[in-house]
């Protein structure tokens, strides 16, 4: 087991966003969490990245280590968990190259950085062409490529992605998911959350359905895709 999450509770002030959810991820998998607006998808990822506090009875184990012992920046630099946040959140005042460099700020395995950069450029050749461009002036599709490339440079064990399809034209969405498949094939486990359930279930091996802070269903993607309730609620009937 790569990541095991037990009884994860997160509150914002008095509002409980996650009511004790459980899920786990095996090494090498692509797993998705689907759910509607406000279901708690982003919150789940923020909890893994340790940028929101979790409830006292929650536990998260990553490669046998207690994730709760790590601060947000150490989750990335020590454990190799990278996070592509909702809305990309690139550093628009930095160039493409600087965005990629910055992600390696605290990496200890510096000898692996050049080959990771090569991997990023082989998956997203567009980024290499635009290396000196300010990230803020990239097109939406290029920005998403950079957001994923940047995450790849920051850590290679597990990549968690918050709605990577958001704001992309349908063809670009497919390209993006193909790119994620390549990244996965190079040895990075992937956890993604999506509102676009159809797409997510097509690429992921397994999925969890999140509704108002609770996991209501889980299983292999094809099972979920054929489940009448899922079809009705998330796949448009």
């Amino acid at each position: 087991m790569l990541l095991s999450v037990k009884n994860l509770e997160v509150s914002y002030g008095n509002i409980k966003a996650l009511h004790g959810i459980n899920f786990d991820i095996e090494e090498g998998e692509i797993v998705c969490i689907i759910g509607a607006n406000g279901a708690g998808k982003s919150t789940t990822l923020r909890a893994i990245s340790r940028v929101v506090p979790v409830g006292p009875d929650s536990s998260m184990t990553f490669m046998g280590q207690n994730l709760l012992d790590y601060q947000a920046d150490k989750v990335v630099s020590k454990l190799g968990i990278s996070h592509v946040p909702e809305g990309r959140r690139l550093f628009g005042n930095l160039t493409v190259k600087e965005n990629l460099q910055l992600a390696t700020f605290a990496r200890k395995d510096r000898e692996k950085i050049p080959s990771d950069l090569e991997l990023v450029f082989s998956i997203f050749p567009r980024l290499e062409e635009r290396i000196t461009q300010m990230a803020g002036t990239l097109s939406g599709g290029e920005q998403q490529m950079l957001a994923v490339g940047r995450a790849l440079m920051s850590g290679r064990k597990l990549m968690i992605l918050d709605e990577p399809s958001m704001g992309l034209a349908p063809l670009l969405m497919l390209d993006m998911f193909e790119a994620l498949k390549k990244i996965n094939a190079e040895g990075t486990t992937i956890l993604l959350v999506e509102q676009n359930a159809r797409l997510a279930l097509r690429f992921a091996q397994r999925g969890y359905v999140l509704e108002t802070g609770e996991v209501v269903l889980s299983g292999p993607s094809d099972e979920l895709a054929n489940n009448p309730e899922v079809q009705k609620a998330y796949l448009g009937g």
């Binding site: 940028v51 150490k74 550093f91 628009g92 005042n93 910055l102 390696t104 700020f105 605290a106 850590g155």
Partner: peptide, 23 residues
């Protein structure tokens, strides 16, 4: 890289830890 981190932090404070950088 330290200066780069300062510029990044000025642009988007919350994402800096996700780059493995201690705020």
């Amino acid at each position: 890289k330290w200066g780069m981190a300062m510029r990044a932090m000025a642009y988007d404070f919350a994402v800096v830890p996700l780059m493995g950088i201690p705020l």
